[in-house]
Write a protein that binds this DNA or RNA. Sequence first.
DNA 1: GCGGGATATTCCAATAACTGATATATTCCA
DNA 2: TGGAATATATCAGTTATTGGAATATCCCGC
Lengths: 102, 102
Amino acid sequence: MILTALAEESAHGYGIMRDVEKLSNQRVKLRTSTLYAALDRLSANDLIEIDREEVASGRLRRYYQLTERGRTELAAAAVGQRAQAETALRRLGVTDLGWSPS
Amino acid sequence: MILTALAEESAHGYGIMRDVEKLSNQRVKLRTSTLYAALDRLSANDLIEIDREEVASGRLRRYYQLTERGRTELAAAAVGQRAQAETALRRLGVTDLGWSPS
DNA sequence: GCGGGATATTCCAATAACTGATATATTCCA
DNA sequence: TGGAATATATCAGTTATTGGAATATCCCGC
């Protein structure tokens, strides 16, 4: 979800938090401790990298962006997850296969 | 993924393991320790329950099935994940939106 | 002007989850 | 006869998440 939040344009931690909430229809709320730790791990694994740092009104803002590897892995994961979700719905016999991506 | 594995019919641990591998195109391999602990947790959370136990050739086989709650939560999660995957692909500019659910 | 919520990151201790390994036991195939 | 597949259990060690507190500014309403 963090990678998805960064798929369109670079964002900083707090912005990612808000986007992930929106993406999940408020069902997933990242704690700051989870988020910043995840950001560090994703950086260490070369899936994201620092785009730039800004200081706006005394507050630091560190913008992250997807790396090429992050882009590739997100695409692969998304294709897999979509297929898995379809399988689940088909197996459950859910007939309404409509959706509204945000 | 465990819930998805159980969406069609009840299955036992080892069968779930194989199905999850298949569902994920071999990308996710559940370790036995992960799997059986997860099964215990899902039971405790009333998402799955024991369907029946069999003894086939000296080996125990414990079949699990989704509870009504498990069914509902899986459906909700699948709808959410599909939407999230679509968003990711759209944001990445992936134009091939076809898929082949297994 | 004052409290509260939003913005923004950092760090900690406690809890939860996953990993890798080992154990047990049978069946089937080469 | 040795290895892979089938099946589950359990343990110690690592990794990840949680919930909280700390720090600081800005904006809104009252």
